[in-house]
Design a protein around this nucleic acid. Structure first.
Lengths: 214, 214
DNA sequence: CGCTTATCGACCACTCTGGTCAATCATATT
DNA sequence: AATATGATTGACCAGAGTGGTCGATAAGCG
């Protein structure tokens, strides 16, 4: 927000931003404490109000920052892939990329979406609502249902696939939470993920069908 | 805890208990406010400390109460069913029964498990850890893997099945959250659930196989 | 040196905290 | 009617924590 803040070393900026992210993630806006933020950031109380003028403005800065990052990642996704498993695979990878690049920002936005939408300014709330609605549309339109095996209801299969992928995402993020390193051997996780997706294809897509027509 | 409290009308007891549950669910133990509890329960401040002697004791009462309910439900589950989908179906139904019978208690315990294990007395923490470990064992032992189709890795399939069922559970609980009535037409939801489970069977279990041996 | 900008933390008025207790109210017993 | 007993209240307490300010420095730079 303030140019004073923008002129700081990146590492100092991160210190402060991360401390603020964490505080606003574990507490609602109202209950978040600027005292704890400055304490964890390792700066004097006055500096926070020197950089950002108030708790409100600091919060707004964080919201805009994390929201911009989220939108950036979502826009990178190719939503036109008809093979829905490939589409979700790609979306999951982007999501996890975003998580790895800035976990604090990721958790912050998630926590707001879940618990504290009310404390957002109208503009940002609208922006988020729009983003959510648009994502929902892109998730479910243009799916090539002809790939699905014919003896299960496609809508049912789609939900089961989505829940499965969400389950893997959550599992992986929980495992990754401890790791501090930036880009650990993600390839092994991607292999693992791919294996799960291959299994989903095996069971939900028509394979080398044996329907008696041969 | 206190017999004074036990002598109240059930409805008054519930008023107080639910107010307390909700407060301790939305805040950690430390930040939960007895003022807000008495306000929402509609009683004078003094009464809370007349019934329970302190915030600590009130909290302990809630923990013991919700933990006992959870254990009661878990013990009702038949963990010996070899068909893992049937086993999980039954477990899910019990879980949802517990949720419907006392949502506040359910959410309270869940919130503690997730966010605030530290504020538990040692005894209860051990009890919970034991319960979790035992449940995990019962979830994964004695499974009849011969039911699974042979062209997918059974462990992989098992995880995907579990994630799918968890997904449905969460989806259903989110939909049910609004409803206030005690026992709404659960049958339609069970039918729906059964349909999903049947699909899981179709895709992950060996069906009328056509492996060319006929 | 002087001038500007960065930095701190004591301080302010205020809200909220868990817990207490003298004062009531209700009810039953005598 | 008088008394005793228990239920119930909310004003009150000392202490902790709140967002925010500001005078006092320290640091950088000419």
């Amino acid at each position: 927000m303030n140019d004073k803040f923008a002129k700081l070393d990146d590492s100092k900026q991160r210190q402060i931003i991360n401390a603020a992210y964490r505080e606003f993630t574990s507490e609602t806006y109202k209950k978040a404490s600027t005292n704890r933020i400055v304490e964890e950031a390792g700066i004097g109380k006055g500096m926070l109000f020197y950089y950002f003028k108030s708790k409100q403005k600091l919060f707004l800065y964080l919201v805009e920052r994390s929201l911009a990052a989220a939108i950036r990642y979502i826009e990178e996704i190719d939503w036109d892939i008809p093979d829905v498993i490939s589409r979700y695979e790609q979306a999951s990878r982007k999501k996890l990329e975003a998580f790895l690049e800035d976990p604090e920002s990721f958790y912050f936005l998630g926590s707001i979406l879940l618990n504290d939408l009310d404390s957002l300014p109208e503009e940002q709330r609208q922006q988020i609502l729009h983003m959510q609605q648009q994502t929902k549309e892109r998730m479910f339109s243009g799916i090539d249902y002809s790939l699905f095996r014919s003896d299960v209801d496609p809508e049912t299969a789609l939900k089961l696939i989505l829940w499965s992928i969400n389950g893997y995402e959550q599992d992986l993020m929980a495992r990754l939470k401890g790791e501090t390193f930036q880009h650990i051997n993600m390839t092994s996780y991607w292999d693992e993920f791919h294996h799960y997706l291959q299994t989903l294809r095996t069971v939900y897509y028509k394979g080398d069908e044996c329907d008696g027509n041969g």
